[in-house]
Every structure is written in structure tokens, then in C-alpha cells.
């Protein structure tokens, strides 16, 4: 389902990060753990097709990302990969509902208001359908971000430090929601974090090591 082989990424041709091979079954839930600077975000961007690896391949649902042209990769990402960031992003001028409509349009999917309402119901924020994203609470923003990642029924959901800014109570809830929604959509879930609180909840784990020649910033 989600498979990498010999993945490497080099910054300006000198400092190179290499990653262990990953192979995730469809519908399985994974935790990628590692301290700051070991390249967690870089791995997530490589998996999401936001970065191009200098060596190795990323294969999602039978498609090798490296073989797609850049616009085709954008389309593929829109349809097949849902990404959740630590800090949720929205188009500010649009309401929650319109953001979801836009996400479907950008991925080339037909409008589906029913699915949008259904999704928001499941996430318990359907009353925010017409709300501007500025007017959401932190918890509601995180839920709306999950809805956006799921609206196109992706095969893979990637989450980058989704809980690092949250307290224990909200962390538990966000992880529960992510697992619940990923299971409902039968999507592969891969959470990248340095947050050890999540360890107990994921049976599949990958530990990234700090690489001495890597950039400290990532």
C-alpha cells in the first residue's frame, strides 16, 4: 500500500538524510517516532510528494510518485493522500464548508455536499459548516483539518505532529478521531511525531535516528 525503498534526501547536495524502508499494509496505523532534527518532516514531505527524493522510491497504491510529472503528482496527492499538519491551514476567505468544497475541486473531484455534511457530522462540527475558519476554537480547527484531509477519500493519511501543541485530553481525542476516521475510510494512517504519549496507541512503530551529518533544522 505504502512502500519506500532506499529513500534518501540531500540538502544542497551535501548533507544527506537516509530513511529506513517502510512498508505499510492498507488500513494499518503507523507511528514514526524521532527527536527533533532526525528528518521526520522531511520523510513526511517525501511520502506526500511535496519533496522529491534524491535516491529511492515512494510507492502509494501501486503508483511510484517519482514517475509522475509534477502536475500529475499534484493531482495524485489531492486524490490519494490526506495530510494533517501540526498547525491547521485553511483558505481564510472561505467558510469551513467552502474550504471542503475547494478541496474537492482542487483534487478534480465532483462536488459532494452530502459527503461534506456527513464528514462534519462524524467529526461533530457540522454546526460550523458556515463558519469562517478564524472563528473556530483550537479543537474545532484540528477537527476541520482532519475533515479536509479525509474529504477526497484518500488511501493514505499522513499526520505531522498533530498533537504537539495539545494537552493530554485533546491529544487523546485527536488520536482517537484520526484512528477512527482512518479505519472508517480504510486508509493507511501514518503519524509522525516526537510525542511519546502516542506510543501506547500504535502497534506499528518506526524509530528514526538522529543522523550526524544531517541538518539540525529539520
Amino acid at each position: 500500500m505504502l512502500r519506500t525503498t532506499g529513500l534518501e534526501y540531500s540538502y544542497d547536495g551535501k548533507r544527506t538524510l537516509s530513511f529506513p524502508d517502510v512498508s505499510c499494509e492498507q488500513g494499518s496505523h503507523w507511528l514514526v517516532l524521532g527527536q527533533s532534527g532526525c528528518g521526520k518532516t522531511t520523510l513526511l514531505h517525501l511520502l506526500g510528494g511535496l519533496l522529491t527524493p534524491s535516491r529511492g522510491t515512494v510507492e502509494i497504491a501501486g503508483t511510484r510518485l517519482g514517475e509522475l510529472r509534477s502536475t500529475a503528482r499534484d493531482h495524485f496527492r489531492g486524490r490519494q493522500i490526506g495530510i494533517i499538519f501540526q498547525k491547521p491551514h485553511f483558505v481564510r476567505s472561505l467558510t469551513v464548508g467552502e474550504n471542503l468544497q475547494l478541496a474537492r475541486h482542487l483534487a478534480g473531484q465532483a462536488p459532494d455536499q452530502e459527503r461534506i455534511v456527513h464528514l462534519l457530522e462524524r467529526l461533530n462540527i457540522v454546526h460550523k459548516l458556515q463558519a469562517r475558519t478564524d472563528n473556530l476554537s483550537e479543537g474545532e480547527r484540528q477537527r476541520a483539518a482532519i475533515a479536509l484531509a479525509l474529504v477526497n477519500k484518500p488511501k493514505v493519511i499522513l499526520a505531522d505532529e498533530p498533537t504537539s501543541a495539545l494537552d493530554d485530553h485533546h491529544t487523546g481525542e485527536v488520536v482517537r478521531l484520526l484512528e477512527e476516521q482512518a479505519s472508517l475510510a480504510q486508509a493507511t494512517l501514518l503519524v509522525v511525531t516526537h510525542d511519546n504519549r502516542l506510543k501506547a496507541q500504535f502497534p506499528h512503530q518506526i524509530q528514526l535516528q538522529v543522523q550526524p551529518n544531517a541538518s539540525g533544522a529539520l
Binding site: L50, T71, D74, R77, G78, H89, L102, L106
Partner: peptide, 19 residues
């Protein structure tokens, strides 16, 4: 400048540079 993140987010959601 203000929309830097939302533009990046649109790209993540499948928007091509052309869009």
C-alpha cells in the same frame, strides 16, 4: 505574505502551480 500558508495548503490539496 499573509496567504503563504494557505497557498502551500492549496498545493498540498492537489492544486497545480498553474491553478
Amino acid at each position: 505574505k499573509d496567504r503563504k500558508y494557505e497557498l502551500a495548503w492549496m498545493r498540498v490539496m492537489g492544486a497545480t502551480p498553474g491553478k
